[in-house]
Nucleic acid binder design. Sequence first.
DNA 1: ATCCAGGACCACT
DNA 2: AGTGGTCATGGA
Length: 288
Amino acid sequence: MIHRFPVADYDLAATLECGQDFRWDRRGGGWEGVVSGRWVRLEPVPGGIRATALGDCGRAPGSDGDWEWLTRYLRTDEDLAAILSTFPDDPPLREAVAACRGLRLVRQDPWECLAGFICSSTKQIVQIRQILRLLAARWGKPVRAADGSVWHALPRAEVLAGVSEGDLRACKLGFRAPYLRAAAERVAAGHLDLDALARRPLPEARAALEALPGVGRKIADCVLLFGLGFPAAFPVDVWVRRALRELYFPRARRLTPRRILRFSETHFGPHAGYAQQYLFHYRRTRPD
DNA sequence: ATCCAGGACCACT
DNA sequence: AGTGGTCATGGA
C-alpha cells in the first residue's frame, strides 16, 4: 500500500532525526518505523513524501485508502510558511530557519512521547534510542514490515504498568525505571488521561504532567509540544540553553533559569515550540 | 580517565 | 529564587 503526500518544504531527514521522535531507523534513502501500530516506510520524492505501509490502510478496495493516521503524524496539512511568519524577526532565528529549511514538528502518540522523554533525562539520543528499542523488543506488539521482518511498537501503558522495576532496569533505564513505571500505572489506571489533557489550557496540562515523578518542566514541555499539540510549549534542555545563551545573551555573565524561562515565554510568539526546535537542531548539528 | 548527555529532586542558603 | 549533590549508564 503506497501513498504520496504532496507537500512542499518538508525535510524528512531533519524532521525524523532532530530528536523529537527517537523511533525512526534510516534505511537506504528512507526511514522506517511504527506509527499508530503500523509499520511504515517514508521516502522523500520530488514534491512530497512517499509512504509505504502494510495491511488495512485502505477502507474500500481500489480506493486511495485512509491515510489520516499518517497525515496526523506528519502534519503535512500544516502551513509551515504561516508558522514561520509568526517568528520574531531576529538574526538568530533567521539563521536557524535558513539552516534547517523544511524542518517540521510531528505529532506523536501522547503515551509514546511521554514514555520516550521519561527515558531521555541525562541521556544521549543514541542511548535513548537503545532504551526504547529494548522496551519495544521485549514488551511491544510485533508489527510486520513489507519485507517480512518483524518490528515492534512501543509497549502501551497498560503493559508497562505490569512490568517490574528490575525488568525495566534491565533495559538500561537506571534511575528512570520507577518513573516510567509510575507513569504507566497512572495512565493505565485512568488517573491521567493524556488525550483529555490536549483539550485543557496549557498551564493546567503542564501541571498535570509535572505531577508525575520524574517529569519536570522540560519533559512536560516535550510532551505538550510533540505529543499534545501545544504550539507554545518550549522545552529548555542543555542544547537550547546553550543556543539561547550564545545567540541571544552572548555577553551575559550569568543567566539564571528564571531569566531563560521568562525569555522563552515572551520572545518567540504563539509557535514558540517550533522556534525552539529550529534552535535546538541548528545548535546541535553545528560543530562548536 | 574525565566529562557530559533533550533532567528531576532534595537539601541547603 | 538560586546553587550543589545525587541518581545510572555509556559515548566521546
